[in-house]
Every structure is written in C-alpha cells, then in structure tokens.
Design a protein around this nucleic acid. Sequence first.
DNA 1: GAACTGCGTTCGTCAAGGCGAACGATCGGT
DNA 2: ACCGATCGTTCGCCTTGACGAACGCAGTTC
Lengths: 186, 186
Amino acid sequence: MRGSETEAIETISIALRHHRERAGISLSELAKRAGVAKSTLSQLESGEGNPGVETLWALAVALNVPFSRLVELPTPHTRVIRAGQAPRIRAEHSGFAAGLLSSCPAGASRDIHEIALDAGELRRAEPHQPGTVEHLIVVSGSMRSGPVEEPAELGPGDYTTFSGAVPHVYQAVNGPTTAVLIMEHS
Amino acid sequence: MRGSETEAIETISIALRHHRERAGISLSELAKRAGVAKSTLSQLESGEGNPGVETLWALAVALNVPFSRLVELPTPHTRVIRAGQAPRIRAEHSGFAAGLLSSCPAGASRDIHEIALDAGELRRAEPHQPGTVEHLIVVSGSMRSGPVEEPAELGPGDYTTFSGAVPHVYQAVNGPTTAVLIMEHS
DNA sequence: GAACTGCGTTCGTCAAGGCGAACGATCGGT
DNA sequence: ACCGATCGTTCGCCTTGACGAACGCAGTTC
C-alpha cells in the first residue's frame, strides 16, 4: 500500500486529462469551477499524489462526468454469447435457470441472462442487492415485465430498464417469449 | 470544498459496509487483506474522513468489487423504449439515424440505439471515444457485427460486446435484420 | 517594447489521512 | 470461571494531500 499502487492514480491522471480536454477547458478554469487549487489539479494530472475522494468528486461534478468515469476505464474484450449457449455458471436467478457472463475480466459487475418463457408463464423475482439495475430486451413474443406494481407491456425489440432492488416480474403475454436480460449488480 | 462535501463519503460509508457484509468477512479481515489499517477502515465505515483513492482502490480489490461500486449507487427510474419509438435526440450514430436514451438522470453515460438493416446492408462505424463499450443484442434476422478485423456472426437472441474505440461494423447477413445496441461511453 | 492577461508548474505551510498500539467487548473452548 | 482469540473502536505520531502565492511562459493590446 504505502509506496507502490500506481495503478489507480495512473488511471485517474489519464482520465482527468482526457475529460478536461474533451470539455475544452483549461486546467485553471476547471480548478476554479471545482473549487480545487490549481496546484492540486496540476499534480493530479501529472500522476503524482493520492487524491482524496472529495477532491475527485468535486472535479467529476465540475466536468459533468460520473465519478466512476474518472477512476475506471472500461476495456472489454470482444465477446459473443449465443442464444441458448450462455454458460450456466450461476445456476439460479431468482428461482429459474439463467446463463451468465461477466463482461469485465475483474470485478464481475454485469450478468447476461437469457429468459425463455412458455405462453402465459409468469416468473416472479425477489429483490436483489440494492443498486442492482436490470436491462431487458425482448427478442420474440410479447412480455409483461418490470416492478410488480407497474410492469410494462413489451414486444420484440422493446427495451426497458428498472431497479432490481424491488420485486419484479417476467411474464409471457401471448405465446412463448424470449428475452435477454442484462443485470448490473453491486 | 473544505468543510462540507458529505455526499461522497456517505455513499462510500454505506457501500463499504454493504459489500463487506455481503462478502461475509470482518472489518479486521478486510483490513488485513487490503493492507489497510483497521483504524482507517473503521473510520471510513463510520462516515468519517475523506479517504484517499489508493485506500479505496485497495479495498475495492480486496472486496473483488469494481471501484465504481464503492462510490456510486445506481438508482435508475423505470423506463421503456418501444421498438421503432426511440426518441431521436441524437440524430446520427456514426452516420446513420438511431434512437437514444440516457438511463441515468445525471451523467448520461448510456445510450440505447435501435438498428434496422436491409438484407445485406453494411454499416461501418468509426471509433468513438476511448472507453466506449458496445453491447449488441440481435432481435431478428442475422447479423455480422464487431471490430472490423473480427466481426461475429449473430442470430436472434445472440449477444456480443466489444470496444467502441475501434472501427466496427454492423451487417445484415441474410434478410432484413433488427438489433438493439447499448452504448456505454466516456 | 512594455504592460497585461491567461496558462501550467513549483514552493512552503497547515490541516487531515493513514498508521500502529492499546483498549474494552464478545464469544468458545478446556 | 479462566483464558485465548477475534471483534470493532479510540488514541498519539508521522506522513501526505490540499492550499495560496509566486514563478516562468506565451500570446495580445496599446
């Protein structure tokens, strides 16, 4: 800990410069907007120092960029998941089998699930971890899905997103239905 | 800056406790694994202090959790995008029309695009911002998509993800094809 | 060419973070 | 009941981040 750990600050250094130049503002201007000393910002962009979270937070706000963008550069590998061939790493998702894929090599923050429902079939999912977000895309058939109190009617190609932290449902309305579910979870 | 700024550290305090308890390890154990003093961790979970990035980074690694999960709790609203009804906020995506939705109220880090291709139609996309990640789900037809040097063959329900930072293609192989594209960008 | 504005860097000071040690509390085992 | 282990918190010390001021540079303006 003490001494090495260049990984985090390198990332920050790069991201900081990138977003500032992208916003088209000077170092001085950003420092002024964020309420951070020019000297501090200068050092950060030079890759020196271990900035406090509040400092970074202020910079993220001033840059109008999500905090995570300053500290995490997504560098995914190209991947393909075939319909019906998703690996069964985690066997159960709220009571029914589903395939899973982590798109990030380390961290495993995203799952891809296939959902296949028979005509009229209804599946209830209990709340997941707080902060879980679900993205659903209907491939074929028609579906009623979302939070139990207000599920949405969806057809092929329709997309919906909702919080996974509340009870939610997946139901085939007319005939067999398939969909892809992307789960971001904490 | 100096004095207030409880927003960030509150989030961190909660997230830290949450993930540690979820991992089922003690405060002492986590401190040992992360190479962080128990006292430091104790204070952080109490919501005191403005932790350095390296400290948080080490904790994230020890918890096997993406850094951003410690500092950002996604709280999305439920949304639905109908096939063919995606709002045309941004008219062009690499040269062709596409619908767009930001799932996060502030930050706008994710776009949803619909892609409709005629039989055999090929669309090339120039590289986007570094750090851009694309998620593609084929709804109907068949598609060849991915980085230009190694596009993947996809059928209905197939999923692929690849970096948007390199040139990539979307091509309908046999007959008209539709797909949904989720773009995360920096 | 002198004065001026804005840029990014460097320097010295001060407050705050991170550390180890010691502490009381809570269990389990003999 | 005693002892040991582990838990999470609190206490001084030292390191380090963040600050403001001053610096050197470049491009304008008069």
